[in-house]
């Protein structure tokens, strides 16, 4: 597939550009002499742009490849093919040393606030470590001052500096994860299910914090999540993935008001609304069946076995990801 006809904007305002990204993990059999018997096509030809200052939501169910896409951008995985450009630099061409200054500009917040903090480090050490790695604030005193600043920016009391992660609640730990990401003054943060593990009231606090930080530090986010109402609240544009493919991409309001792909429609219909009167009136379109294995994805359109609008051709031809309206991209031949 050529890059033309892909949802790519003007170069000047693009911060991240993902071109035809593929990440296939080999599946091996045999203990002594492992042989490759297939590939898990975790990400299979995904292209998108993220503009400066934009929050792009990436949604989909487990195994759709949204986290792998994020990991490829971070160069935590070596993509099978495709390019990732950050500020016009192709990250795939950089070696470890060349990547280091990029890592300062790109940070990540993980889902699980329990496993993403080292249990044997104090909060102060956790937040100052990235500054040490990137040689920011080499002076001990100014670094300590900045740790306190970051704690306060993230709504944490200064007394936490000398505490350990186990002394904190999930919401507080997630704030530490955010403070750690901010420590190196990044431009771009990948939030991988950053609020999914939190309770409703704490989740709302952290969402507000992420919004405030975006405005204050002019951050760009890739917000990976499965909660469609949170994504709607936070994002400017939303991309929907299914089984390693991108099925729809549009401005947030356009996607939620006018979803076009049958999968997007089904996803939106599956989200219950916290209002019994509305829920009892609403028609629910329940998708049948399970998500197929990404080792043997269905032929043609990967969604066709579960799709209510599928026609004969859907099992044969791979639908083209095309722009049906300005800024609204859909991969469905029936739209």
């Amino acid at each position: 597939m050529s890059v033309e006809g892909m949802p790519q904007g003007q170069d000047s305002d693009v911060l991240v550009r993902v071109k035809n990204l593929k990440m296939h993990f080999p599946v091996t059999e045999g203990a002594l002499i492992p042989q490759v018997v297939g590939h898990v096509k975790a990400v299979d030809g995904v292209s998108f742009d993220i503009k400066k200052g934009e929050t792009l939501g990436l949604v989909g169910e487990s195994g759709c490849g949204k986290t792998t896409t994020g990991r490829c951008i971070l160069q935590l995985e070596k993509p099978t093919s495709g390019d990732i450009e950050y500020d016009s630099v192709n990250l795939g061409n950089l070696n470890r040393v060349g990547m280091l200054p990029m890592r300062q500009r790109i940070q990540v917040i993980f889902q699980d606030p329990y496993s993403s903090l080292n249990p044997r480090m104090k909060i102060g050490e956790i937040i100052s470590e990235p500054m040490h790695v990137h040689n920011i604030e080499p002076d001990q005193q100014t670094r300590d001052k900045r740790v306190l600043e970051l704690l306060s920016v993230c709504g944490l009391n200064a007394k936490f500096v000398d505490r350990y992660p186990h002394e904190m609640s999930g919401g507080q730990r997630q704030r530490v994860g955010i403070a750690r990401a901010l420590a190196v003054r990044p431009e771009f943060i990948i939030c991988d299910e950053a609020v999914s593990a939190l309770d409703v009231s704490i989740q709302a606090q952290v969402i507000n914090l992420l919004e405030d930080l975006r405005d204050e530090f002019n951050l760009t986010y890739l917000f990976i999540a499965h909660d469609l109402s949170v994504v709607r609240h936070l994002c400017h544009r939303v991309a929907v993935m299914y089984l390693g493919k991108m099925v729809e991409l549009a401005d947030c309001d356009e996607l939620y008001d006018n979803p076009m792909h049958p999968y997007t429609k089904a996803l939106l219909s599956a989200v219950p609304i916290p209002d019994p009167t509305i829920e009892h009136k609403r028609k629910h379109q329940v998708v049948k069946g399970e998500i197929p294995s990404p080792i043997n994805p269905p032929s043609g359109c990967v969604f066709h076995p579960r799709c209510i609008s599928a026609v004969d051709g859907c099992s044969k031809a791979i639908p083209e990801f095309r722009e049906v309206k300005p800024g609204h991209w859909v991969a469905c031949s029936e739209v």
């Binding site: 919401g171 989740q203 709302a204 969402i207 507000n208 709607r232 609304i273 209002d275």
Partner: peptide
């Protein structure tokens, strides 16, 4: 009331800010 107000809802216009319960349990 606070619980109901702290979740973003898909059927309502997007709010500028969520209205979370302050503090910890």
């Amino acid at each position: 009331l606070a619980l109901l107000r702290s979740v973003p809802r898909m059927d309502q216009p997007r709010k500028a800010k969520l209205d979370p319960v302050q503090g910890q349990p």
